[in-house]
Design a protein around this nucleic acid. Structure first.
Lengths: 226, 226
DNA sequence: ATCTATTTTTGAACGGGTTCGAAAAGTTCT
DNA sequence: AGAACTTTTCGAACCCGTTCAAAAATAGAT
């Protein structure tokens, strides 16, 4: 099953092949789009037979997932760096999503392929699946850090739910962005600004006794989602 | 292009064939699931050649859309009837979604096929596409009625945005429900209750001057979505 | 170096959504 | 009834994601 990499030479060669397939795929996706690129194209661009692509990747969409996975690791330190410069909650949240939009920008169009099965949490490539748990949790940590480093005090009962909630909103924003056909995704820009504004305002107000009953119900709702 | 139905006899026959194909498809989808039913199966269950199914329906998914379209019309009067018995906003909203869950229940599993392209507003079958505008707007009217008939006074600036917003939340609930594997979709039940609760509470509070700034931003956000 | 086991590569074949050109059935007009 | 036209039906063929059995390459053991 799991290849035991005894020889570094062979290991490197195999890895190189995998890399070539992935790279060819991503180039084709970027140039031509996901649906317009066939596995035959990808394999031949990488100089291998069709079957080889399936030896390294479970499916065509898994190629996009491999990109997403690498991206998540690569973005980690960029996010850390960006966070270190901000203190206001809104701008900290903004920093997190900005890193993502920047990183994803050249690949925006084909990222949609990943979200095709998003709704089905049993699909291995869904952002809600067991298989993607690790990526998801690593990603939620970014929001955790954005919250903790800010100068805003949060109600304690709400705090544990916030990373998940923010992560979820972020997925919504990314989804909107992927399909945003407006010039330079200007609509997404506005949406991000306004929605982070609301999130920040609501969190500021959330400690107020006035909103306590709503907050209670909100927490119950979040717990119902688990 | 558009068939001119000059003879009622032919018109009826053609319609009957279309109906047979749709019915066979839905039966197969219900028995076996969407992905597990092939167009060849569907056609042969309807007693026609594969090509005939494509003469009447643009794609396999269009069969599900045809069901959805019929459903929306059929649910209209059920919703009216249900609304006529309620006055509280929360229970009026509940009435609307309950009719839908009841109606969709036997078809829950294959409805997911419709939401596959949900995110792409340019896909003809997306609930956000131009092609589905009519269905969508008819559906939003239900929420408009739910709001207007309730005993709750709403801020005027918010009112025009609410049907869209409620409709969107409802889509989220339906999506959750479709993929809800818990016993009798108990998780959806809780989620619906809590989220309608929050909506109702927030709307009650929304007139308060305390929340005015948030409301303003929220309205800007909604406008950014158009 | 040879044998054995494992990993990698190959490309033909499969399955299912969809297309398409041609045949059949139906309609309209004379 | 026959010609001219449109609508409907047919099923083979196409495309593309994916599978699979067998061949090739590589590694380890003797």
């Amino acid at each position: 099953m799991e290849p035991i990499l005894e020889s570094p030479r062979a290991a490197r060669k195999s890895e190189a092949t995998r890399g070539r397939i992935l790279e060819s795929a991503l180039n084709l996706f970027r140039e031509r789009g996901f649906d317009e690129s066939t596995m035959r194209d990808i394999a031949s661009a990488a100089g291998v037979a069709t079957g080889a692509a399936y030896y390294y990747f479970e499916s065509k969409e898994a190629l996009v997932m491999a990109f997403y996975q690498e991206a998540n690791i690569a973005m980690h330190e960029r996010i850390q760096a960006a966070l270190s410069k901000k203190t206001e909650l809104k701008s900290r949240l903004r920093a997190v999503v900005d890193v993502k939009f920047d990183y994803f920008a050249p690949n925006r169009k084909f990222l949609g392929a990943l979200l095709r099965h998003a709704a089905d949490p049993e699909h291995p490539l869904s952002p809600f699946s067991n298989e993607t748990r690790e990526i998801r949790e690593r990603d939620m940590l970014h929001f955790s850090e954005a919250l903790d480093g800010s100068n805003l005090r949060l109600p304690e009962d709400l705090r544990p739910h916030l990373p998940k909630l923010l992560w979820l909103s972020q997925m919504g924003l990314i989804l909107f962005w992927i399909y945003d056909r407006s010039e330079n995704q200007a609509r997404t820009e506005r949406l991000v600004d306004k929605s982070l504004g609301i999130v920040a305002s609501l969190l500021k107000l959330s400690k107020s006794p006035f909103l306590r009953p709503v907050r209670r119900t909100a927490i119950e709702l979040l717990e119902a989602l688990n």
